[in-house]
Nucleic acid binder design. Structure first.
Lengths: 247, 247
DNA sequence: CGCACCGGTCGGTGGGGACCGAACCGTTCC
DNA sequence: GGAACGGTTCGGTCCCCACCGACCGGTGCG
């Protein structure tokens, strides 16, 4: 019924992401949480008025959803598909690769490399390990495209994750998402999100600062057992925030 | 190892698609073929010098690959993943929906709606029908994500499409691609491309003008048999190019 | 060998948009 | 009620970039 998408419409959408400030907003919102306009303005280093303008355009363009609460304006990515779009673009964009300058930054970076949220699923070394373990255990199979196996359904039910509701939405059940730090795929899609949520609910993982996620003391053996891997493989990076280190 | 992609890199990539002319180039190149600089300039309605500038930027940005032959500069999308990116963006962009003005345009649009290439796989009514028939026949299964079944491997081998080479690359074997005209998914990925190529090789389909594809007289019963569908379901739109029609 | 053609390069021009400061509005808390 | 705060609107400034015309280099054909 509709004609082909024309260049102007495509360009208009791309233009929303073609500004460093707006792109930075979207990358920040990739943590899956709702931010206030002021937080985003500070994080991007622009005046509140500028940020307000940008947010209005992003909302009107359908990339962001907003929610007003009192004097605050909360915004979040409109949709998992927006997160996927931003991920795909970011994955193709060249990495500036500026090494961290301070010890604190290096430590924070190590935490992020270990485990973090990627919109609403797990990423980092832990995310890739989860992905690999699910394949090894036969929960997932990629003989003909990544798919959940019948064995996998039982495994998930055991874990307390009902599968049927996940099939209901339009969102793909399982999907590869290229990990920026590991350069290997981790698990996204409705199932990736459900597992990430379940681990938090079970207390196996907990949110750290920003997008960082850490494995709790109770979670380490529990997760290792569920995935049938050696608990040692789940070891977080050695903590360096006690005592000074030299350059 | 690398740090997070920063807003500037993402914005720079998006900026390549944030211009109507460049976006139009990419949409034109979605037909999977290589175009000359002049063809693209004429199709977009800009001066050759302007087009040359744009192409240089798109090539430097990694979205397009070029190939010089004599005095011609051929360009094509760099990669199937670029095609996917453009598709995803175009699918989210609002459709301008300008109805066709002339009879010739209406006829051309009907041909495109029936069957066309989407980068390197089949789209349009025929593409969606193929997708549905493969699911119905058990070649594909989406119980836990879209996947090729063991039955499907045999079916493909029968058809003369070896599956193993398709697994080799980094490209996903099967993937959904939202059809712009049908608003329903058709089959993309390495398998989608291989089937489209195989149908052309077998003479079941043939290229029409532009991105259009038509089913040959020999192809119609053959394809119907292979898919186990009624040949009537494969009927193309009634041809209207004989005799005038009134508005 | 010249002519036609495709394409790239180089200034110049014009428009769009990113940014800020200042003034303003509504909420929250004392 | 008043003060502090988050957010928005409005003008104004400045820079970037899309576009063209003109000129130049390489290719292919007669």
């Amino acid at each position: 019924m509709t004609t082909r998408t024309d260049g102007h419409a495509l360009a208009g959408l791309a233009a929303l992401l073609a500004d460093p400030t707006r792109a930075g907003f979207c990358l920040a919102l990739l943590d899956g949480r709702a931010w206030t306009a002021g937080e985003l303005a500070r994080s991007a280093g622009v005046a509140p008025s500028t940020a307000s303008d940008h947010l209005t355009r992003l909302v009107r363009g359908g990339l962001l959803a907003e929610e007003r609460q009192g004097r605050h304006r909360y915004v979040r990515l409109a949709d998992p598909s927006v997160a996927q779009l931003v991920e795909d673009l970011a994955g193709r964009a060249p990495a500036p690769a500026a090494p961290p300058r301070t010890l604190r930054a290096a430590s924070a970076q190590a935490s992020l490399a270990y485990a973090r949220t990627c919109y609403d699923h797990l990423a980092g070394r832990l995310g890739v390990l989860l992905h690999d373990a699910l394949l090894a255990r036969g929960v997932l199979d990629r003989a003909g495209g990544l798919a959940l196996t019948p064995t996998g359904v039982a495994w998930l039910t055991d874990l307390g994750v009902p599968v049927e509701p996940l099939r209901a939405g339009r969102r793909p059940l399982v999907r590869d998402c290229l990990d920026w730090t590991e350069r290997r795929p981790h698990l996204a899609g409705a199932l990736g999100a459900a597992l990430c949520r379940r681990f938090l609910d079970l207390g196996w993982t907990a949110r750290g600062t920003g997008r960082a996620v850490r494995l709790t003391p109770a979670g380490r053996p529990a997760l290792a057992a569920a995935l049938a891997v050696d608990p040692a493989d789940l070891a977080p990076p050695a903590s360096r925030d006690t005592g000074p280190a030299r350059a």
